[in-house]
């Protein structure tokens, strides 16, 4: 993980946004990008795009978002930042799907003939699930890159905590006692919970 990222990861979106107006602040841009890009890409994939197309959509969405933000098109009073980005993303996905249709020649798609995507509510719920997943991902990443957590402890946690492997089996696999496995699970779960909480706050504060 890049050295600056953990700090920026927990910086609130609002503060990141304020710093974003400064064109030279690449660090902030990449923090925001790291925050939203995986969510957008995951959303796009779940709406049916291929991996590479989804990545493309995420890129376009982020570019469009920053351009609009710098142009002053984002009015905070009219809604949350995430809703705004979601709107851009949804639109970009629909265009990408139309382009794909056109490329495969399945229909003579026109600009006003955009493909149907799930309703607004479903999309919001996908978005929120993907946001949670992104947060968890980030938290797990911090844990994995934390050199103070040794490999065995982490493995024990992954087996018992994330894969619901019985403790005795995990103990055998990791060469630990059952008790040590439980201890590892508790310690890491607690770290993870804290991390998830911090990151969620950082995300949420963009009202």
């Amino acid at each position: 993980m890049e050295p600056a990222a953990p700090i920026l990861a927990t910086r609130t979106t609002t503060r990141l946004l304020d710093a974003l107006v400064d064109h030279s602040n690449a660090e902030v841009w990449s923090a925001l990008d790291a925050r939203y890009r995986p969510i957008i890409a995951a959303l796009a994939r779940r709406l049916g795009l291929r991996h590479t197309d989804a990545e493309e959509v995420a890129q376009q969405t982020m570019t469009e978002f920053v351009r609009a933000y710098r142009d002053g098109r984002y009015d905070r009073s009219k809604g949350r930042l995430s809703s705004w980005i979601l709107g851009i993303a949804h639109n970009t996905v629909r265009h990408a799907m139309r382009d794909r249709k056109r490329a495969t020649g399945s229909a003579a798609a026109r600009a006003d003939d955009l493909p149907d995507t799930p309703d607004e509510g479903s999309i919001r719920s996908i978005w929120s699930e993907e946001r949670d997943r992104a947060i968890l991902d980030q938290a797990l990443r911090v844990l994995r890159d934390d050199s103070s957590v040794d490999d065995r402890t982490l493995r024990a946690f992954e087996l018992v905590g994330l894969r619901a492997v019985p403790a005795a089996q995990a103990a055998a696999q990791c060469g630990m006692s059952v008790d040590q496995v439980y201890v590892a699970k508790s310690r890491i779960t607690s770290r993870l919970k804290t991390l998830v909480q911090q990151l969620t706050e950082a995300f949420e504060e963009d009202a």
């Binding site: 997943r133 968890l136 994995r144 992954e158 994330l162 894969r163 779960t189 919970k193």
Partner: peptide
Amino acid sequence: ESAFLTRIRGLVAPGLQPI
């Protein structure tokens, strides 16, 4: 702890780092 883990297992499963 268990409730938290149950919740995150659902989220983390597709992208779970292999052991």
